[in-house]
Write a protein that binds this DNA or RNA. Structure first.
Lengths: 239, 239
DNA sequence: TCAATAGTGTCTATGAGACATTATGCA
DNA sequence: TGCATAATGTCTCATAGACACTATTGA
């Protein structure tokens, strides 16, 4: 590489316009609990490519919009979920993941309660459905199966050491409601008695309201964001 | 929104070319241990914008290259680190992070031993330096301070539940070498006796070679990737 | 009054951490 | 032979989980 070539390469390295454009999409894994089961929001594609297949709600990033706003709007446009939590999962950038051109996708994870509660398999609008994550296998467009898997795994991890489980629930909930969130997201049963004490022993996770529903005390979310001690999933014994 | 406008919006949603381009950069937080201290690789910028400030090694994504290759090459071009581990941290996309145009950065974390061992503050090449992370504060260009912080935090987390600490070390190492990795990345002292037994009690983390250096047994990396039980950092008691 | 769920009691096993003690190899 | 570091012993405390038991409320 001679001097001028090196200089050109150097300048190009620092000039974004020197390269062909790469498309940037934002796709969201929106999770909610329906009837005790974890569900993910999907859209049936009406256009090329992958016409007819399921895809995550998403759109292309516009230069003047933030990733977060883009991620939330894509979900709001399709369903009545109000994400109590939004976080970035990561960026998926396989070279041929989109047949049209190079497109990378910044994936987001959103979860929250839906109101009113739909049923599992519920068709929210034209070509929009909630799919029960652990009950059936779903064929997605692009690499969206990978993204869903990463999103679910992230949700599972986050329930261990953050207080985010409460964002799946309405403001008031019982201990069983909260346990149901863990059971749905982790897809395994949990001992009610031990769960009860573990949650109460975790500072700031929930606080009692004082009222009851049937014979169950009602709680609201506490002010903790990180849980200590964590609600452990004992991964070593499982995966 | 009338029918034709809606249709146009719908089509645009699925056509990447319908939007102004967004630049995609890849920046890498490359970490290594120098003299028992955690160091990060930085480049002094020679061009606008932020001329003269420190930045992470990085470049723009070309349509035909993968993120991972781009991330590793950016580091290899600057220093003699051979990343034993590479993972994506996340995508940083603040709207005005780059004054030239909208540029999002997919950030990667790399770590591994350097050979030969440089000294801390070592100038690897023209305008390339290793900076001791916890000894001094460094002013970076763009939002690269945030990216470094996220990278270091990710490294700290990963040492808890993965066997990646060994990738900071050469093939043969003593228990003290391994403890030094944890102390450098976590930036706090660890009881040698308890660490010793905790590591040996963690299936597949290290295996003894049988030989010694001074009076210390030598080990090599085991075949485990996830650690169980994890080497816990007791975050609750700290942050 | 019965059934289902909520909530409490109790025991065991595991692992983290403090810190004392012994072993090893080099100056 | 003495010193630094390696390696082992021993104790305490916190927490997870199994499972038996009692309490409460609606059908």
């Amino acid at each position: 590489m001679d001097q001028s070539t090196e200089e050109a390469a150097f300048l190009a390295e620092y000039d974004p316009r020197a390269y062909d454009p790469v498309g940037v999409a934002v796709d969201t894994v929106a999770l909610t609990l329906i009837d005790g089961r974890l569900n993910v929001l999907a859209v049936k594609r009406r256009e090329h490519p992958f016409r007819g297949l399921l895809a995550l709600p998403g759109t292309f990033l516009r230069p003047e919009r933030s990733l977060e706003v883009t991620a939330v709007d894509a979900v709001r446009a399709k369903a009545n979920i109000s994400p109590g939590h939004l976080e970035q999962i990561g960026t998926f950038a396989g070279i041929n993941r989109d047949p049209r051109m190079r497109v990378i996708s910044v994936a987001y994870l959103a979860f929250g309660p839906t109101d009113p509660q739909p049923e599992s398999g519920w068709v929210v609008g034209r070509d929009v459905v909630w799919l029960p994550v652990f009950h059936g296998t779903w064929k997605f467009a692009f690499d969206h199966e990978d993204i869903v898997e990463a999103g679910v795994k992230r949700a599972q991890d986050k329930l261990e050491y953050t207080a985010l489980a409460t964002t799946f629930l309405p403001e008031e909930f019982t201990m069983s409601d909260l346990r149901e969130v863990y059971e749905a997201v982790w897809n395994r049963p949990i001992d009610p008695a031990n769960f009860y004490r573990k949650v109460l022993g975790t500072k700031g996770f929930v606080e009692p309201i004082g009222t009851k529903r049937r014979n169950a005390a009602l709680f609201r979310a506490g002010d903790a964001t990180k849980l200590f001690p964590a609600i452990r999933r004992d991964l070593g014994a499982w995966s």
